[in-house]
Design a protein around this nucleic acid. Sequence first.
DNA 1: AACCGATAGACAATCGTTTGCAGGAGGCAA
DNA 2: TTGCCTCCTGCAAACGATTGTCTATCGGTT
Lengths: 344, 344
Amino acid sequence: MANESVSELKRLKMSDIARLCGVSTSTVSRALAGSPLIQEATREMIIQIADANGYVINPLARGLRLQRTNTIGVVFPLGAITAQLISDPFFQQMLGHMVDEISLRGYQILVSKVTPPKPGWLRELIKAHRTDGMVVIGQSDQHAALNDAGQVYLPLVVWGAHLPDQQYCVVGLDNIAGGRMATEHLISIGRRRIAFLGDPSPPEIAQRRQGYLAACQAAGLDVTDRLIVPAGFSPQQAEAAAERLLTENPDVDAIFAASDVIALSALHALRRAGKRVPQDVAVIGFDDSAVAAHSNPPLTTVRQDLAHAAHLMVDQLFRRLEGEATAGETLAPELIIRQSTVAP
Amino acid sequence: MANESVSELKRLKMSDIARLCGVSTSTVSRALAGSPLIQEATREMIIQIADANGYVINPLARGLRLQRTNTIGVVFPLGAITAQLISDPFFQQMLGHMVDEISLRGYQILVSKVTPPKPGWLRELIKAHRTDGMVVIGQSDQHAALNDAGQVYLPLVVWGAHLPDQQYCVVGLDNIAGGRMATEHLISIGRRRIAFLGDPSPPEIAQRRQGYLAACQAAGLDVTDRLIVPAGFSPQQAEAAAERLLTENPDVDAIFAASDVIALSALHALRRAGKRVPQDVAVIGFDDSAVAAHSNPPLTTVRQDLAHAAHLMVDQLFRRLEGEATAGETLAPELIIRQSTVAP
DNA sequence: AACCGATAGACAATCGTTTGCAGGAGGCAA
DNA sequence: TTGCCTCCTGCAAACGATTGTCTATCGGTT
């Protein structure tokens, strides 16, 4: 048995099977592919011998010949800001959903982390022809590269913000609406000195801030720059930013954090500063990741339905593989009210 | 510019570059590979022309010829229990760390979700030769398949439990010690009716339960079967299991959950049943995932350092790629005491 | 017996690289 | 001028599949 195992692992090619069956390679190829050119009896005999010998087709050779790899690339362009993929549960969740959706369709997943992106990165990735299509998670600061590639490469779908001069297919949340929605909620519970915590270099976050500013203006709140604090996505950076905010603006009465992770760090900082949530300071996050529902207090947040998003993206990607120039989609954010803004 | 872009995307092969340079394909190949056979001047000329035309080497053809793909496979064998990769943050985090570690070494990552595993799955994956090595995350119920492959395929590293008759390289936590540690902690704070919540079909969980049983016996606690409740890993399943536990054993005074997700569900169920944590029932989880620190109350748990684990696994895998038969490693669990077992 | 049509299966080119081997150009010494 | 040696560079054969084209075989018909 062990011996058989060893022998079974040795490289076995189609021509070997052909020899064992006493037919030519082409016949084996056609038989395995289920071509009608091959007689049923021959086909069965060949298949039987092939898997008795543990033959597995070589996808590299097949891909080279067919110019198809049965593989989708999932790409994370990470700017200097977020060097680690694991730094935010958002990326992890999105990746998990992508794996689920793509493998459901019988494709393999090739994950690339591009960090930091060099000028031709997307073109190079495309021209390598290792994947039949590509999903890019987050625009980072790579709008230009995406535009450049999106014009000429159809099977590309991007998760991110909708930008005005966009030449590529985007599926993404309406971040402006999300930012407005969050801020209006804070205003509706009587808050006036509302801070925004988040790094606006990714366009998603910039749009959330834009929505925040719009809501503040509409309510006649004046937003000093000091209420807008750039905060990195890692818990450490976020906590430092929250502390800076609190020392510079002791009278802040609400915090809109650009992600749940940032919001949790803010909760921590507030607790250490002796502020009560939500009585002294209300806190709202963004994403509705797993942590939000279980935090103390449970976190009010703006939900993005990543399972649905992933499904849509993969659906559009596969339609693009068929040649359809899909239009992208804008998802509606949903406000999830919990106890970090409204005491029970 | 747009026009140049379009032209740049058309398939360009090495022989095209050779023609443009007025040399042969072999010279281009050698030049790009930095072979000392090619004169420096020629080499520079070729490289200059190659990337002026945006030439990208075709990794499929290269891989076919070299029998090397510069790719590592990350495989999740999911039994019937966990059909979704995204169901547990453990898998997501592990995947995130794997992507970080592997791309750090300049390799690509090919993710496969195998669900449910069919008899020859691992052998087939190996024989496809799409990857130079393979990391399997979790043994699920596939110990036999792993043994079968591990005997003949060197570049394979598995995350999971250490089992007696193991023929493959495992990096994993000492789950028995972890289970014992958790249970002893509960005993040390005076708990006597300690429940175990978790599905013991994956060996990791079985070993945690084994440690739990050992600690109970050592302390002279008798464990009725009714205190051991199989609970799925999804929040819904876990919550149902926790509720069943509470109705069947109203006098339970501690719960050891096999994962943090299960523990959080238990917290929910306890709150709904009107029990205080930790006063009435102490709760301890496993993993120390991101949710644990922020829950209400913060969750006491047994920490597995996944960043370190991922680093070790990838390190051993690359040593195996060099031919070294690495021995695997057992990581020590660490008890993280928070307020779900000890009131502040 | 000769011919024809249909059909199963073989041949060979192709996908885009890498690399062992052979050969050509140029330099230097005799 | 010849011969030899040293560098470069080119030729062609892999790597392992797929597929258009062509051939052989077989049965049936006249």
